[in-house]
Structure formats: C-alpha cells, structure tokens
Simulated scan of single mutants.
Amino acid sequence: MGRTGLNRNGFAYVLPLAVIMLVAFDVPILLMLRTSFAPSWTLANYQHLIGQEVYLKVLLNTFKVAAITTFFSALLGYPVAYWMTRLSPTGRLVAMAFVVIPFWVSVLVRSYAWIVLLGNAGIVNRALLSLGVIDQPIALMYNELGVIIGMTNILIPFMVLPLYAAMTKLDRRLLQAAATLGGSDVQTFWMVFFPLTLPALTASTLLVFISAIGFYITPALLGGGRVSMIANVLDVLINKMPSWELAAAISTVLLAASLALYALYRRVAPHSGM
C-alpha cells in the first residue's frame, strides 16, 4: 500500500507537467501534421512542394548554409576547446566566462552588432578604407557570408562547450603513455587525442547543424532579404500569403529532417562522453 500510494502521489506531481507538455508541444505538432494533409488527407501539399523548384532551392540553400556554418563552428571551436584544456584552472574559468557570456546577450542584439561591424559603413570597412587597403566597401553583409558569420558566432558555444567537457574527461594517462613510447606532441594529438575526441566532435557537429537549419532572426537581419532559408519562407507563407497548408508541409519536412539528425546524434552521443 505504501509503495502504491507513493506511486500515485508521484503521478499526481508529474501530471500537471505532462498536461502542459501535451497542450503546449504535442498538440500543436499534431495540428501541424493534420494541416499538412489538408483539406482531405491527401499528399497534395507535398506534391506541390516537390513540384515547385523554388521550395526545393530554399531547402537546399538552408542545408548548405547550415553545413557551412557547422564546418566553421567546428574549425574554430575545436582548437578553442583544446586550448582551454591546456590552461590553468584560473585560465579555464576566464576562458569559460568568455564562451558563456554571449548566451546572456540577445540573439537580436548580437546580430545587429555584426551589422555595425561589417556593414558598408561599418567599423571593418571604414578601417580598411582609412588604411588604403580597399578603394570601396567590401560586401560583407546582406549576403550568405554575413549570415554564415553571424550564425557561426551564435552557434560556436554549442560546439566549444560539449567538446571541452569531453576533452576534460579524457584519461590523460593515455597521452602520457603515448609520450613514453616516443610519440611527439603532434603524433600524440593525431593518433591518440583526436581519435578519442572524434565522437564528441561528431555529436557537437550534429547538434550545431540541427540548430542552424531552424535559424530565423540572423538570416533575416544579416541576409537583408537576399538569403532565403526555411524559417524565412515559413514567415512569408504564414503572415503574408497566407498558405498554412504549404507552410505545414514544409515544417513537417523540416521536423522529419531534425528528428533523423537527432536520432543520429543520440547514437553518437553515448560514445562521445557528452
């Protein structure tokens, strides 16, 4: 009786949260799925999506921008995480603060900051013009380059923090054993350290890519309306056209892609120490 009563009480505590999750998350997703097959449970919306080349181009462009952003996040994030592991305890705290502090700043503010830096009249272009390096402003903004720079800046902490956590858990005796056997620092890194941290890098890469394909604010601001991504097209379909059924179909495709990537992430994550 005591255990049964405890289970009932536990269920009573969990029930409100379960109801909130069901109403706030599950029901909207089910309604979206239903809308994607509207009006009469057909695949007409998906057929229209496949038949219109513009939507396929947007989907491919979204995955391309997300992939490039993920690549540069890994290219910059891995050395930073590795460098942090070689610092003193105080140095690690300071470096960690610089990585975490951007989380406290609004994505909107950070995106506008890049406009101030990279715009035609921004700090970078004005500095290059004053030094005589260029004769006219370089187009660093309102194109894919600006979007990738902004997205990489926002997502790189999601690469650094998991990698740093995995690297700090690595058994240092393995590195010492490699050095004892005559391996140089470079050999120890590429033959021991990097292979052991590769699962964490793969998991972090998937995490960043999943986040990148759903970006809205940064492409809208830094792309200047010239870089079409899924989230921006959904805004047009819902708020301007409107075409809820087609928007629901595109959202379903995006959801399926995200779930597939998340399933892959879950397979990799247990082996990455994350």
Rank of each mutant, 00 (worst) to 15 (best):
R8Y: 13
L261R: 04
Y216F: 15
Q176M: 06
N153C: 07
G224C: 03
Y262E: 04
R267L: 15
L161G: 03
L196Y: 08
L76H: 03
D26L: 11
I230E: 04
G10L: 14
I20M: 13
M1N: 01
A248V: 06
I238Y: 06
R8A: 15
M151L: 12
A178R: 08
R173N: 15
A263F: 09
P102K: 05
R110L: 06
G225Q: 08
A256K: 02
D135A: 15
R266T: 10
E144R: 07
P16H: 07
V160D: 00
T42G: 13
G5E: 05
P195H: 06
M32L: 15
A249Q: 09
L60K: 12
V160N: 03
A74G: 02
L181P: 03
M159S: 01
G51E: 13
E144L: 03
Q136I: 02
S211K: 11
L170N: 09
F215R: 07
R172M: 12
A166I: 02
N9H: 06
Y55H: 09
P102L: 02
S36D: 07
K64D: 02
G10E: 12
V54Q: 12
T35W: 05
G10V: 08
N125E: 07
G10W: 10
F103W: 15
F11K: 06
P102F: 09
F194Q: 04
V227L: 09
T4E: 10
L161V: 14
I250W: 01
S88C: 10
R126F: 09
R126M: 11
W41Q: 08
S88Y: 03
L30M: 11
Y78F: 14
A66H: 07
V186M: 10
L108R: 09
F215C: 13
N9S: 11
V94E: 07
L145S: 09
L155V: 01
I101S: 06
G223H: 09
S88L: 05
Q176K: 12
W41F: 15
W83V: 12
